[in-house]
Design a protein around this nucleic acid. Structure first.
Lengths: 180, 180
DNA sequence: TCCGAATATAGGACAAGTCCTATATGGCGT
DNA sequence: ACGCCATATAGGACTTGTCCTATATTCGGA
């Protein structure tokens, strides 16, 4: 349901085509809201059918025609209603934790390998986010500040993840040693 | 797809009924893997159809019959294969970040309210996890250690979330003040 | 010269998860 | 006395998201 709201949010900033929306997602929102291309276009169709947005076809000579989507008043209302609605309880899935939970049969050394793999991925994510953060624009408007804040959130959680992994790893390694 | 693996993981520890599985999820894995009751039973049916588990009906006088599921060899292999498979890239959705990203139209004070709501939820989660952690058994086996580690992960991330929220809140409040 | 990437939109098939309801009974609180 | 909760399993309807493919052209690199 939320992809619709994200679409409305982007279109509220500026009228866009589906393709541009895809770009906007992958460059600015990918780390907290991956958007499938197919799903994006379907959501746009539905939003238009529901009268939330309006599209105008822009013909192009060589490229396929572009459909430029504009936010309509009902769409803006839906967006504001979403922003003001109570926060839904957070029930996110953590595939890594699920695996770790059941990983005992890998043995201590196997689990440590798992932790190292996860650590690599977390470090990679963190460096990506660091790069994005350092190339971010000056925080002039509230909107820009908030967009930057989502980056900061990702960095904070990535750092927390790495710290947790290191502590767990040390604990397991230590335990293994003393068990010798 | 992962619910299947979680089911195999639990049944590997001990043969269980669907109902007991539901309990196991909600008491030990709820914070990183919510399991819908309907989905659970469907997954069990499929796992049995696929020859991964086997069920025996235990008749009861007053209560409905219980179907006790046992892990079969192919199921154990599937579980081990999953544990040894490469980590999938992490693409989790963060509805709160999505909302924050587009929340500028709420104004600084509206955003601060949003942050406060989120903070309350995070604090509540943290205290729940703290309680679970303090009532956790002694970390004797590797399995118990890993299960405890998932709790620690939740706590680490909850604390990171609270810290991030506090910093952002201070920054926004400060900005608002200096803009007067 | 050929292959892939970028531009631009769209549909089909499928997987996974959510929400609601149904069935049947016993115990507990108010 | 009445309703709700726990026990125990299951199906229907629906939403959301994923993966793959199709279409059509242009440009750049190996």
């Amino acid at each position: 349901m939320s992809l619709l709201h994200a679409v409305l949010g982007f279109v509220a900033i500026q009228p866009m085509t589906g393709y541009e929306l895809g770009k906007a997602f992958s460059t600015t929102a990918a780390h907290f809201w991956p958007a499938d291309q197919s799903q994006l276009y379907r959501t746009l169709h539905r939003a238009e059918a529901d009268g939330l947005v309006e599209s105008t076809t822009v013909e192009q000579a060589t490229r396929p025609d572009r459909r430029l989507y504009t936010l309509l008043e009902p769409g803006r209302e839906a967006l504001e209603a979403w922003l003001a609605s109570p926060l839904e309880p957070d029930n996110s899935r953590e595939p890594f934790l699920l695996r770790l939970f059941f990983a005992a049969s890998l043995g201590t050394s196997g689990v440590i390998e798992l932790l190292d793999q996860r650590r690599s991925a977390a470090v990679e994510l963190l460096t990506t986010l660091d790069a994005l953060a350092s190339s971010a624009p000056r925080k002039t408007s509230l909107a820009i500040q908030l967009q930057y804040a989502t980056l900061e959130s990702g960095r904070a959680h990535a750092r927390a993840e790495i710290t947790w992994l290191d502590e767990l790893r040390a604990q397991l390694a230590n335990h293994k040693e003393s068990a010798r």
